[in-house]
Design a protein around this nucleic acid. Sequence first.
RNA 1: GGAGAAAUGGCAGAGUGGUCGAUUGCGGCAGUCUUGAAAACUGUUGAACCGUGAGGUUCCUGGGGUUCGAAUCCCUAUUUCUCCGCCA
Length: 423
Amino acid sequence: MIQIAYLRENKSEVINRLSVKNFDATELADEILEADEQRRTLQKELDAVLSYQNQLAKEVGEFFKKGMPHEAQEAKEKSAALKETSKELGDKMAEAEKRMNDLLVRLPNMPHASVPKGKTPEDNEVVFCVKEIPTLPTNAKPHWELTTQYDIIDFELGVKITGAGFPVYKGKGARLQRALINFFLDHATATGYTEVQPPIFINEDSGFGTGQLPDKEGQMYHIGADNFYLIPTAEVPVTNIFRDVILKTEQLPQKLTAYTPCFRREAGSYGKDVRGLNRLHQFDKVEIVQITEPEKSYQTLEDMRMYVASLLEKLELPYRILKLCGGDMSFASALTYDMEVYSAAQKRWLEVSSVSNFETFQSNRLKLRYRKGNDKPQLAHTLNGSALALPRIVAALLENNQTEKGIKIPAVLVPYTGFEFIN
RNA sequence: GGAGAAAUGGCAGAGUGGUCGAUUGCGGCAGUCUUGAAAACUGUUGAACCGUGAGGUUCCUGGGGUUCGAAUCCCUAUUUCUCCGCCA
């Protein structure tokens, strides 16, 4: 959420920058500022009335103490007469404030100055790409055939138990999942991230804090009886650790990592996008999250990007890095890098990680602040990234590493899997 | 699930209707002393909103109520603790 004070001072800049995201904020900004103006006017009036009421209340006490019941009664009546006025003003102010907030949360985050303009994924900027894109023999199989051939992932069985998009991992397939999770967590902790295991249900406040609510409600699974949501990413519970928290500068940066299953309804997806492991309703992911001072967040974003790239290199997967254009970026992000691996049998790039700097957009909603010495608290920056999401990594590993002898496991994973081939 | 108790500032812990944004202790910060440090002493130390400022308003788990006035009384939700039951 953009800070209201910032919008008040820099309306045209906000509008200009949001145009990079193809968002026309002209009208919305005016409505917000109008509500803000009303709110402030009403508060001034209300404060004056309340102040007078407080004064009268004190006088009542004093009159009683001095044994002046008549005067006390008079002050009482004066104050009572004001009650309705203050109640009315209070209601109006709360209403204006709510209106302002409801509008304010609809403003996307402003993109960083370096974000390229653009509307579709084609407009994303390729900032890195491996030199050689692997080619496979013509009889090479897509991963959904390999998983059946080696009996390591059963999509049909998942359909029986739950529904489409909830696969059952079996034997070496299940072991490969566990190996990847451990590999990712071990590397994250070795890089200074603290491992946490958060709840995978979240409440409404948490969903709001990181920006999933109210806009993306339809993309999360909802537990009606308790009003919980299943997490779409560990970003939500992990970042919400810091909701309503004031950190000291010495406590920054905060670096956390978490493995969780993730749940996404993916309403509206279809076709080859959802084939096999390409898009699931439940999948595993290791996430990294950092909380930093504003001046350091872009260096941190580069660090996180390099870290994720190093994982892909260790796994010997061909990858590229995209800087997302304004039109392809998420609502809350100021700058996002997507990491994609090449899936050689499908002959397409698959997104396996998204690393973003949200600047103060989330922290403003979360009231996540930090304090330098005795200064006034100010909003921290939040960042996160997948490191990494499993299914598409598995898809690429299976397809790219298929050999006569079976699927070859990358050397770094062998200590985790305990086997060199899936055959 | 049943019965009872509780929720106060970074922490501990006072406060049962008026001068309480809240005694006190610890912790934090600044200073005095010291070559330096420790100790001791002194001062200071929550947040949000409005206001150029002086200052004003709000917040004692959340929500609602009683009252001229609520941390304090009432209702409600949540959480925690104790006992009982069930159970991984």
